[in-house]
């Protein structure tokens, strides 16, 4: 077994305490050990990943292009404009900007732009939304942001090992839910939270997403996915605030992950990315199906 190998929260925390390192730093060393590349090479790869994410955000906040089916497009731009009229908003600059960034990535994905599937295409907005917006607020150095991204990846890896990151297997909790839990930990690390606090933030965030259906209209990653990413930023920031304030999750993160796996197992396939239940079979959902030449599904009430 490699020195920095981990599969669970417990193992990760033991490594953090033993080496007096943050989660992000352990993740970096884990990847270096696993791939046989230097830590700086691993960091450089994450920089490339970050640059692609930035590019998607930058394009998305200025784009007003509608997606092929006309269901989404231009909302990131609206949220971006709202940043100039903050007195009208209830959230602060960090949250409004995070929501606009998350939408930007989702809209780019829907219109065939280049994105990073972090952790998946469907949940790709939350992490850039939360981490980039907060980094701008802290005026954080590059290293801090990268560490946040490494920390988020480590949390994602624990979810992938213990449960799943595929909505086809586990519903939306496994994609947007996972993204929110990952972003909550990444943000907490960037703010100087301890590894324990990071996992408390993740646990509290993921608990709020357990059981969420994956029921996109026409099976496309557009409605409700993009707005779910956007609002997921609020939950991630909230969970991180709670952890920093000293609130602890009563259930440890590893157990929350197992709960997610359990729910995935008993969840109907109709709400696992098949467009056969939930929002996908509403009147509007069926209209989109018809437009796409798919079979209409009567709503089972």
């Amino acid at each position: 077994m490699n020195q920095f190998e981990f599969h669970t929260t417990e193992e990760m925390l033991a490594l953090c305490h033993k080496h007096k390192l943050s989660i992000g730093e352990v993740a970096k060393r884990y990847e270096s050990e696993r791939s046989g590349k230097s830590v700086s090479a691993v960091r450089n790869k994450m920089k490339q990943t970050r640059d692609v994410m930035y590019e998607a955000v930058r394009k998305g906040i200025h784009s007003t292009q509608k997606s092929k089916m006309g269901m989404v497009g231009g909302d990131a731009h609206k949220m971006h404009l709202a940043l100039k009229k903050m007195p009208e908003m209830m959230g602060n600059k960090v949250t409004v900007r995070a929501m606009s960034y998350a939408m930007a990535v989702g809209e780019q994905n829907a219109s065939m732009g280049r994105i990073v599937a972090f952790p998946t295409a469907g949940g790709a907005g939350v992490i850039p939304g939360v981490l980039f917006s907060s980094a701008e607020h802290f005026k954080a150095g590059k290293r801090k942001l990268l560490n946040g991204m490494f920390c988020s990846s480590a949390v994602g890896l624990i979810i992938a090992e213990g449960a799943t990151l595929s909505a086809a297997k586990g519903g939306c909790q496994a994609e947007v839910g996972a993204g929110v839990a990952m972003a909550a930990a990444g943000l907490t690390e960037m703010r100087g939270g301890t590894p324990d606090q990071c996992f408390h933030a993740s646990a509290m965030a993921l608990k709020s997403y357990l059981g969420l259906a994956c029921d996109p209209l026409g099976g496309l990653v557009e409605v409700p996915c993009i707005k779910r990413n956007s609002l997921g930023c609020m939950v991630a920031i909230g969970a991180s605030d709670m952890a920093i304030a000293g609130v602890k999750s009563f259930i440890p993160f590893d157990e929350v992950v197992l709960a997610m796996r359990n729910i995935a197992k008993i969840m109907s396939p109709k709400i696992r990315e098949t467009a056969l239940g939930g929002l996908a079979v509403t009147k509007t959902g069926n209209m989109i199906k018809q437009k796409l030449g798919m079979k209409i599904t009567p709503m089972d009430l």
């Binding site: 599969h7 990847e31 557009e222």
Partner: peptide
């Protein structure tokens, strides 16, 4: 147990909409 890369999580870089 699988041996996932950090970049299996933070990636792949792709063109949307679906992996």
């Amino acid at each position: 147990m699988s041996n996932l890369s950090i970049f299996d999580i933070a990636g792949p870089i792709m063109v949307g909409p679906s992996s």
